[in-house]
Design a protein around this nucleic acid. Sequence first.
DNA 1: AATGAATGAGTGTTCATTCAT
DNA 2: GATGAATGAACACTCATTCAT
Lengths: 226, 226, 226, 226
Amino acid sequence: MARTASVANTEHRRAAIVAAMLPVMAHHGYERATIQAIAREAGLTPGLIHYHFKSKQEILVELVKAIMEFARARFERAATNTTRPVERLRAYVDARLGLGAGAAPDMVAAWVMVGAEAVRQPEVRALYEQAIAAELAVLTQLLSQCLAERKRAIDAAPALAAGMVALMEGAFQLSSAAAGVMPAGYAADAAMSFASLSVAAAPRANVFKPSARPAMAVESTKASSL
Amino acid sequence: MARTASVANTEHRRAAIVAAMLPVMAHHGYERATIQAIAREAGLTPGLIHYHFKSKQEILVELVKAIMEFARARFERAATNTTRPVERLRAYVDARLGLGAGAAPDMVAAWVMVGAEAVRQPEVRALYEQAIAAELAVLTQLLSQCLAERKRAIDAAPALAAGMVALMEGAFQLSSAAAGVMPAGYAADAAMSFASLSVAAAPRANVFKPSARPAMAVESTKASSL
Amino acid sequence: MARTASVANTEHRRAAIVAAMLPVMAHHGYERATIQAIAREAGLTPGLIHYHFKSKQEILVELVKAIMEFARARFERAATNTTRPVERLRAYVDARLGLGAGAAPDMVAAWVMVGAEAVRQPEVRALYEQAIAAELAVLTQLLSQCLAERKRAIDAAPALAAGMVALMEGAFQLSSAAAGVMPAGYAADAAMSFASLSVAAAPRANVFKPSARPAMAVESTKASSL
Amino acid sequence: MARTASVANTEHRRAAIVAAMLPVMAHHGYERATIQAIAREAGLTPGLIHYHFKSKQEILVELVKAIMEFARARFERAATNTTRPVERLRAYVDARLGLGAGAAPDMVAAWVMVGAEAVRQPEVRALYEQAIAAELAVLTQLLSQCLAERKRAIDAAPALAAGMVALMEGAFQLSSAAAGVMPAGYAADAAMSFASLSVAAAPRANVFKPSARPAMAVESTKASSL
DNA sequence: AATGAATGAGTGTTCATTCAT
DNA sequence: GATGAATGAACACTCATTCAT
């Protein structure tokens, strides 16, 4: 009933503007995500955008942070149900690929645009690298736990994590620009299969006789929407 | 006499303009790849660009085709040395990831920009999907051959190919925008490892007693530069 | 009770706003002296500025008046110690040049900006002319007293005053925009020297035999349009 | 009859744009000398202005150079008729004040605006200081020659030159913003009078018995900060 | 074929001013 | 009196495209 305090109002406005930039960028890219278009999407006047943000790039930076935070939060929520490494890994993959692309295609497309801007804008690149580094760190930890649980050497975890991150980033790109030619729901399956097989194939930790028996069932991976 | 005929000259000019667009797009993206910058890169005058191309987008379309053709040609060249499915698969992966990123970073970055444009420009998207479909077809065939050679069911080939394409597209993105945080040379290794393990784990074709023995050595994968 | 009456408070606010405009104009000029910047300098909110002033130009008008008043007050203070014409003249020059630029560079720079605005804004020009006319009047009177004291004809006083005003206005400009290339402390010396020599060289009042004829004939100077 | 070559055409356009900026700046100042207004004055379209100049400031910089060059050329032309120091000095003063203000009031007003911009724009300030330094150098030389001709010590030349430059800059300001209250033609007279009297009053070079001692002691002037 | 000057629509951004609270 | 969010008209600048030569 009572109007929120001005500070909160400003924060709300900023959040609304960032939120408005997401679909505009998803459909038109950064350069064509004009201040006018963002304002229209947010139901505001163009001048007001620059009252709340110093520059268009600042909105982009906030958008990148928001998407990062969104992904992080979704994983945290999904991972609270279990402590088993494999299940946590699956929760991570599903959070990123299973629901992500299907439930939030605009966010996925916007992220693809962010990735393209990261190629040429140093400030965006720094944020993007930070996001990728965070992904790598989380995945490396999860994979290390999976490997340790099965008494495997964890040396391969970083490279494996890198491959999974690449697969996921590529899946985002393809779901945004070539969805028509990709098989349904391949991505989460492929990611989990890659992880499972790699863990199973990893050499035993400090042991001389590796058996390399795949015990994590690949077949259990199913029903991802990307 | 020394001058080539005008048609051929026109074709040369067109090719030169397309070639000039590549590095400009790699560094500035499509929107900021101005006609002036392309002309400067090509050593031509701005007006001449529009004499040879109806619009800027037409140059982009030609560039996409040129990159597709370049990748196809490189694979063909590398694959002539062998008929063994596994080696041909490796040749393919190396052609795309092994030398690609290191030898032609501008082309990789330009391809990333193309991918972003494909999200919003229908004509570019059609081409991009065509390119991805071609990748999928080639990889599916190569993987099917690998599976058949080992008497495995080939049903999983399309999904596996999709995963590999995603991994490669993601690797392009990451090598262009987050090279600093990725492990060295992870991509080709990951792609080959993924393929090898998946082939090995595939069920036997039309056979009741699967043994699931991994016979394609994962360790043979080495030293890729992406 | 402790609060001053609203009218007085309003006056204080107006004075504070005018005072805040001075350094902002000194550093950014009139056009770039934004209401936001003035408000920040004054520790007020932007909206309040327009509560106390109808427009930005009204603040400028008040600022011009304030600077004029400041200069007048400083001279009055310095001139109370003496009644001797020469000393009063020196007090005037020192008030304007001796301490002025050093003690209040912002005010000097702001005055330069006022001078530029006077070129194009009629209302500011009217005030500026009023200020210059006041300077001329004061200087003419002081110089007339100096001349009279030495029994010289006072006819030249207005022209001499005009030259001194020009020298001082120019000194303000140069101290604000070219301090690096000007000799130290030249201005007050030059002004006093100009006055002293001119007084000494002036013809005797109502006398037929002029003495003190300068070797380089001043009379030969004629027909200048400025 | 024949169209001039393109390079010359471009140079002509640049010169025309610079020339168009002069009256616009003279009447509206730099900030309000909009690209639109300059284009209108030049009879060109706004877009073309930025085809020939990278930025508005670049036009300003060229304008400053043009005014400097104009003043230099006018003096050179006027000074060719004589080698006598005093006459050359007069030629200089007349070139700057005698005809200048009357014949080219827009240029004088534009120069005043340049002076104001020099306060806040480092690049303009650098040019302005260069212009003032050139003035000082020329005047110092001319005054030194006058002093030498009359066997006077030339030590005072720099300070005297500085005073004259200040007087002239101030005269420009006043002729642009307070012409109505200034006596007619005072400036050139004042400048020449100042120079003549100062030369006459200067001590003899290397001589023990100085003559021409002014009754109002110039030496008493000290410690001014400007 | 080729030039490069020219156009005009559109961009991000600034800012004096207004106004609901 | 006071706030600060909001407006809208300007601004400098960019750029694909056109066209006279």
